[in-house]
Simulated assay, not measured.
Amino acid sequence: MNKTEVIERTAEYARETLHSDSSGHDWWHVARVHRLARELGAGEGADLYVVELAALLHDISDYKLNGGDLDEGPRRAFAWLVGLGEPEDLARAVADIIATMSFKGAGTVSAMPTIEGKVVQDADRLDALGAVGVARAFAYGGFKGEPMHLPDLPPHLHASVDDYLNRQGTTINHFHEKLLLLKDRMNTPGARRLAERRHRVLEQFLADFLTEWDAGDLT
């Protein structure tokens, strides 16, 4: 099986697995991340085969949705690629990216050692910003049964992975606890440029939301 066939098979696997997701981690999220990662990776001279496979498989079993199992997603990605006949070192490179890329709390570090991992991580984080990021935040909040906003509940900047995994909050707090922090955690120049505009979209949305929440636009 050549590389094009592996990518096509992997895309179909992700599409079939995630097509019915309603949490914002669906196939179309993966497709956007795949496109962004490919473009960022080309600009950085990354190995685009590793980039594309990691982007396509990065949410095949997201720990936020599978009960908190941090190892299941990397394990499934590794098994899938080895099952297609790919060498174990390539499968391990992809699995290692998936294991490291997720945001796990304001006080934690998810540093990537490879340029391939950096561009996939950037692409995933870019899709959490901007208008799509707003929509995904509320889709995820609804999926998890979180309230949109509780004015008396302040944001909590989680200091550890366990703290973040056990978070109890609101969608508006999620902006402060994660989304607004992502702009300054981009790895590549291309991602930083895109993040500037998308970050401003988040800020404007929050300002408008809180104005309307308090009916501040009456005057």
Results as ranks from 00 to 15, higher is better:
residue 90 L to G: 02
residue 99 A to N: 03
residue 48 L to Q: 10
residue 175 F to M: 04
residue 120 V to C: 08
residue 21 D to C: 10
residue 165 L to S: 06
residue 61 S to G: 14
residue 161 V to A: 04
residue 191 A to M: 11
residue 133 G to Y: 05
residue 206 L to Y: 05
residue 198 R to G: 00
residue 177 E to S: 11
residue 155 P to L: 12
residue 48 L to Y: 10
residue 205 F to Q: 03
residue 148 M to G: 01
residue 206 L to E: 04
residue 113 P to A: 15
residue 205 F to N: 03
residue 114 T to A: 09
residue 90 L to N: 06
residue 190 G to R: 06
residue 106 A to Y: 08
residue 92 R to A: 00
residue 22 S to W: 13
residue 149 H to K: 12
residue 98 I to Q: 00
residue 53 L to Y: 09
residue 95 A to V: 00
residue 145 G to A: 04
residue 183 K to Q: 15
residue 27 W to D: 09
residue 12 E to H: 14
residue 93 A to G: 01
residue 69 D to V: 12
residue 11 A to V: 02
residue 203 E to T: 10
residue 74 P to W: 02
residue 30 V to Q: 03
residue 34 H to K: 13
residue 156 H to W: 06
residue 158 H to F: 10
residue 48 L to G: 10
residue 106 A to H: 10
residue 27 W to A: 12
residue 146 E to Y: 14
residue 121 Q to V: 01
residue 198 R to A: 15
residue 216 G to I: 05
residue 44 E to D: 06
residue 113 P to W: 13
residue 50 V to M: 03
residue 204 Q to C: 09
residue 136 R to F: 06
residue 148 M to N: 04
residue 46 A to Y: 01
residue 34 H to G: 03
residue 50 V to G: 00
residue 181 L to H: 12
residue 144 K to H: 06
residue 41 G to P: 06
residue 19 H to F: 12
residue 109 V to I: 14
residue 66 N to I: 08
residue 205 F to W: 13
residue 12 E to C: 14
residue 48 L to F: 09
residue 33 V to M: 03
residue 38 R to I: 07
residue 106 A to S: 07
residue 154 P to Y: 13
residue 175 F to E: 00
residue 85 G to F: 13
residue 201 V to R: 05
residue 121 Q to P: 01
residue 60 I to V: 14
residue 67 G to P: 03
residue 91 A to I: 00
residue 68 G to W: 02
residue 23 S to W: 03
residue 182 L to Y: 13
residue 100 T to A: 14
residue 212 E to Q: 15
residue 17 T to E: 11
residue 190 G to S: 11
residue 185 R to E: 14
residue 75 R to M: 13
residue 21 D to N: 12
residue 10 T to E: 09
residue 40 L to G: 01
residue 168 Q to W: 07
residue 81 L to V: 04
residue 3 K to Y: 08
residue 93 A to W: 00
residue 2 N to Q: 15
residue 87 P to V: 09
residue 112 M to L: 11
residue 17 T to V: 08
residue 183 K to T: 05
residue 51 V to F: 06
residue 164 Y to N: 11
residue 101 M to T: 07
residue 165 L to V: 07
residue 196 E to Y: 14
residue 40 L to C: 09
residue 78 F to R: 05
residue 199 H to C: 06
residue 202 L to P: 01
residue 214 D to T: 10
residue 66 N to R: 06
residue 63 Y to T: 04
residue 207 A to Q: 15
residue 94 V to R: 01
residue 205 F to I: 04
residue 72 E to N: 10
residue 124 D to S: 14
residue 194 L to A: 07
residue 170 T to I: 07
residue 142 G to D: 11
residue 83 G to N: 04
residue 154 P to R: 09
residue 35 R to M: 08
residue 51 V to Y: 05
residue 128 A to M: 13
residue 123 A to V: 11
residue 184 D to M: 10
residue 217 D to Y: 07
residue 25 H to F: 15
residue 45 G to E: 09
residue 57 L to S: 01
residue 140 Y to I: 04
residue 215 A to F: 13
residue 127 D to W: 10
residue 206 L to T: 06
residue 149 H to N: 13
residue 217 D to H: 13
residue 200 R to T: 12
residue 211 T to N: 15
residue 71 D to P: 00
residue 4 T to Y: 13
residue 146 E to K: 05
residue 89 D to W: 12
